[in-house]
Design a protein around this nucleic acid. Structure first.
Length: 255
DNA sequence: CGTTAGCCCTGCTGGC
DNA sequence: TGCCAGCAGGGCTAAC
């Protein structure tokens, strides 16, 4: 139960800090869900708290009286001598509180594509989504949340290496066989990363402050200049749509 | 309609 | 405790 909210940086908060604090007080968290990279906490009394952590955001469960860091945006003081701290160095993330009806409308307006880890996400439905954009380059397309939801730069990079597909290949130049391999690669890398507790290549920590264990399983991300684990070729870093991308030029031919 | 560059912000790294 | 450009896991907006 939320006893009190202490706001230290309120500029990424909706509604305004005063209303937000009043609104949260006394509520309990009924469930935690995820849609794409957006967290949804269902709260008592028909309210919802949406949280986007973006790149450097963290939610940390701590004991009461824990000292906020330089980058702690706000603290939920909870019952049971606990606190939930929201930290975000780069201040890209946001929190948004909405009542049920508005929550659904707003979520629908986000226009998220299918969830790759949900049952029913077959390679055919994956192919359908991608083939809507025949001219698009595959990597920027994988990152578009309105095409497939929830894939970020690390996992797009990893999946393309795993499927032996060059990130700049256009969808129209990918065969069904390619898409089947890519579907397998995407679902596999996401499942393994979740199982390992996420990827703490930089800032990510889980709610207990623990790092994720997926970094040792990364095949290309952050390994530029080192050898490809499949062919021993030299991994190379390139820049696509402003995002760093590591490929194995031998395994991933533009073709 | 689609794609792309710029931008939000702070901190760290590597080259000089 | 050297300085500074460039880069970092995201995604919105404006411009073309």
């Amino acid at each position: 139960m939320v006893k009190e909210v202490v706001v230290r940086f309120g500029d990424r908060l909706q509604p305004s800090p005063a209303r937000f604090k009043r609104l949260m007080r006394g509520r309990t968290v009924i469930s935690v869900e995820r849609r794409a990279k957006l967290l949804r906490l269902r709260l008592s009394g028909g309210w919802n708290l949406f949280v986007h952590l973006k790149m450097t955001g963290r939610l940390l469960l701590k004991r009461s009286g824990s000292i906020p860091t330089k980058h702690t945006h706000l603290v939920f003081r909870l019952s049971g001598r606990r606190e939930l701290h929201w930290e975000d160095v780069r201040k890209f993330g946001y929190m948004k509180a909405l009542p049920d009806a508005q929550a659904e409308t707003w979520l629908a307006g986000q226009d998220f594509g299918p969830e790759p880890l949900r049952t029913g996400f077959t390679w055919r439905s994956f192919a359908m989504c991608l083939r809507n954009h025949p001219k698009a380059q595959i990597k920027p397309l994988l990152l578009r949340q309105d095409c497939i939801a929830g894939i970020g730069n690390i996992y797009a990079t990893e999946a393309l290496w795993s499927a032996r597909i060059h990130p700049l290949r256009r969808v129209e130049r990918l065969s069904d066989k390619d898409l089947r391999r890519l579907h397998r690669a995407v679902t596999s890398v996401l499942r393994r990363a979740v199982k390992a507790g996420g990827t703490s290549a930089d800032d990510y920590l889980d709610i207990f402050g623990e790092e994720g264990g997926f970094v040792p399983q990364l095949k290309v991300y952050g390994r530029e200049g080192r050898k490809c684990r499949r062919c021993r070729g030299l991994l190379r870093k390139m820049r696509i749509g402003g995002r760093g991308t590591v490929i194995c030029p031998t395994c991933q031919k533009k073709g």
